[in-house]
Computed example of a mutant assay.
Amino acid sequence: MNIELIQALDDLEKDKGIPKDKLLEGLKAALKSAYDKSGYGPKDNAEIQIDENTGEVRVYSKREVVFEVEEEGEEISLAQAREENPTCEVGDIIKVEVTPSDFGRIAAQTAKQVVIQRIREAEREIVYEEFITQEGEIVTGTVQRCHEGNVIVDLGRTEAVLIPREQIDDEFYEPNDSIKVYIVEVEQTTKGPNVLVSRTHPGLLKRLFEIEVPEIQDGTVEIKSIAREAGGRSKMAVYSTNSDVDPVGSCVGPNGSRVRVVVNELNNEKIDIVEWSDDIKEYVSNALSPAEVIKVAADEEENVAEVIVPDHQLSLAIGKRGQNARLAAKLTGWKIDIKSASQFEEAEVL
């Protein structure tokens, strides 16, 4: 332990952002533990001091001043104590240097281990702080490998895990593939940050449109709601704060250019973009697009909407395996009961 250690701690503080005082505290704690384990003296009776200028390490033992020593290592005779401090009295607690002759070697080894450990901890903390601020954001990563259904994605400073339920059905991931993922959650662990990412989260669809559509970026167009069945179909309700701006057209883009970018990124997922309305009848009608709607009757107490569609539009309104109706209900937050015009007329007659 010498001036080189102090210089190293100064460099770590400057380059890694690890406070020098924290490194010294950790080093003192580790040296005390090493001293106690080595059996040099009674446990919990030692105090480690490190000269911050020279790096010199000294060990002190706390002793009670007594007339006659009965407990070696815990007591000191008055006569011996007064050699150090002529004013001390029986019952005082004084510190006696007990630095072992070979403690320099132990100190050097311990210092190396502590510094390495603190560097790792600091680097983990830096990476965690970087990614915790990116929760809810899209990042681009590289597929590293697949393991037991999980896809490990390299994000540069750390790896992320794309678990099976966050993967798009029928999407294949090969090593070195570049993919965009949505950061769902970042947790700090003893091994570093655990980053959970998704390709199925509605937030991925939302952020992709925010990137592609300038009107969303400047706040003219707002995304009000998203209902998504990843890899199959999604619905997105949008609203314009400017009556001169078409929210749906803004998201679709010239010749469908903007929505096409998002569709391509999501493995050709179909996306219905509809206009949001605070009139629930109009909103439900829009949500069932591309089906035509004749009439909507809304029960606002039960949040149930009865929808009448032309006979030839019934299957389109319901969708394959009920997908269109299911997504419309999820988008609006209302239960939707769909009937054809003829079914409605029959019910009215009865």
Rank of each mutant, 00 (worst) to 15 (best):
M1D: 14
N2S: 14
A8V: 11
E13T: 15
D15K: 10
K22P: 00
E25C: 03
A30Q: 00
K32G: 10
K32P: 04
A34Q: 09
S38M: 12
G39Y: 09
G41K: 07
K43C: 06
N45M: 09
D51T: 01
E52N: 13
N53V: 10
T54R: 03
T54P: 10
Y60P: 00
F67I: 08
V69P: 01
E70H: 08
G73N: 06
G73T: 13
E75G: 07
I76N: 01
A79T: 15
A79W: 03
E83L: 14
P86Q: 08
V90W: 04
G91F: 09
V96Q: 02
T99S: 06
R105L: 11
T110Q: 14
A111T: 02
V115I: 15
E121Q: 10
I126C: 01
E129T: 13
E129A: 05
E130G: 02
E135C: 05
E137L: 12
V139N: 11
Q144M: 15
C146I: 14
C146V: 15
V151Q: 03
D154P: 06
V161D: 12
P164S: 14
Q167I: 10
D169Y: 12
E171I: 04
D177E: 12
Q188V: 02
G192S: 04
G192H: 02
L196G: 00
R199Y: 07
L204I: 11
L208F: 12
F209H: 11
V213K: 05
V213C: 07
G219S: 05
V221T: 04
A230Q: 07
S234W: 05
S243T: 15
C251K: 05
V252F: 05
G253T: 13
V262M: 06
D272K: 12
E275K: 13
I280Q: 03
I280P: 00
I280W: 02
K281M: 03
K281S: 11
Y283Q: 07
V284P: 01
V284T: 09
S285W: 09
S289C: 08
I294Q: 11
D299E: 11
E300A: 14
E301T: 15
A305V: 10
I308V: 07
V309E: 07
V309I: 04
V309L: 05
D311Y: 04
H312A: 11
H312P: 06
N324D: 11
A329W: 00
A329K: 02
L331C: 04
G333R: 08
W334S: 02
K339M: 11
S342P: 10
F344K: 06
E345A: 15
V349A: 13
L350N: 08
